[in-house]
Nucleic acid binder design. Structure first.
Lengths: 216, 216
DNA sequence: GGATATGAGTGGTCAGACCACTTTCAAAAA
DNA sequence: TTTTTGAAAGTGGTCTGACCACTCATATCC
């Protein structure tokens, strides 16, 4: 009988315990010493399991306080993977394209799943458009959220952070036109036009950025 | 100075070491005792880092033999995260959608950037299509590679691992039709048709999967 | 030569000891 | 009485040294 990987069993046990005792995100789970005794296992072994879970963002440990269950919706899938993905893929072009890819998909999704209750959202959008500091990034973020795909949102957010915000600064009137056009097409649920306009805007920005010698 | 989370530093150090010393998947990395000494850290602390990496499937440990850098293929991340996270159908849906999103974008990119030299690729594709074991995943992987966006490819690959391959098994004739149609449209650089066909295929598969009660 | 025993090396586990930190609460000071 | 102080208890973070179980290469024996 070789059942190595005891810590994997512990991971499972902890999960089961959380389920059974109905521990909710934010709640404290028993201390390491307590768990170790309950599970008839050494503390160091137990800790190996806990650290694994922590790296994944499933639990949170605070020295002197204890270990807490974190919201599993905030899991570190993206973050963890990114440290291993983005390392050798520093191609700015790839990051840019991938980011754009998520943005376009979000617009497409929004156009295809419009509900009446969202109508007022666009009005709100228009109001904020008048704010000078309302830039492409803010605009897109709203769209990403509206698309409803949280994973895509997370990836997008990460890519945005990674590539920085090269558009900081004033928002030109040309940009506002792009925004308005895109928004209008979305309102009319015209995906093709919206995406076309959005891409044109993005391309334009890209060129502006290059001509300004803006590099992250 | 409170710099807790030493094991996180170790995770990074190990990653850097792997990169610097050009350790390849399958290669052996130094023993725990060796690493602990080199990094001036206790063996138990080092092990916490190693176990985290192991849970992610980035390394593989074999008792009595050593620790080896693993190929990205076997990670348990899928398993562990899914038991914690995927109870929520919404997350499942997000992964699926995000994956599809990358696939569609790849097809789009290929259609828009066709070069003559790629012509023979399609012939090769057709040949492999006759192989029974050539499934959607294989088909799409080729496309992802052809798209040229390595970052997108990596993200797609991990999402695929994450959501598993529920399509394993025989490839129905209906599927082969879908594949052929998609391929044909791509050859003709007809992005809209290709994507439409591809999405239809995906939707069909999704339904098949549900009706078969296939759940990871 | 082939089978077998041995020993070095490795990961797996444990117990015990500190350390650093947070919280609590009772004693001391105001 | 109220406020401040500080000691104690509890927690995670780390290290050490000791075994155990296993693998593999080597030496030994038949």
């Amino acid at each position: 009988m070789n059942q190595s990987k005891r810590y994997l069993d512990i991971v499972r046990d902890i999960r089961d315990m959380i389920r059974q005792e109905k521990i909710k995100p934010g709640d404290r789970i028993p201390s390491e010493r307590e768990l170790a005794e309950k599970m008839q296992v050494g503390r160091s072994t137990l800790r190996e399991a806990l650290r694994s879970l922590e790296l994944l963002g499933l639990i949170e440990t605070r020295r002197g306080e204890g270990t807490f269950l974190s919201d599993y919706r905030n899991h570190k899938l993206v973050e963890v993977l990114s440290t291993f993905i983005l390392q050798d893929n520093r191609s700015h072009e790839d990051v840019w394209e991938t980011r754009l890819l998520h943005e376009v998909a979000a617009i497409h999704a929004i156009c295809k799943s419009e509900t009446e209750s969202q109508m007022k959202i666009w009005d709100n959008f228009r109001l904020r458009l008048k704010d000078e500091s309302f830039q492409r990034e803010d605009f897109v973020r709203e769209l990403m959220v509206l698309s409803g795909n949280r994973l895509s949102l997370k990836i997008w957010f990460l890519l945005t952070q990674y590539s920085g915000n090269p558009y900081a600064g004033t928002v030109s009137s040309k940009e506002i036109d792009f925004m308005n056009n895109t928004l209008l097409a979305i309102e009319q649920q015209n995906a093709d036009t919206a995406i076309q306009e959005f891409k044109a805007w993005s391309e334009w920005l890209k060129k502006e950025r290059i001509s300004n010698g803006n590099n992250t």
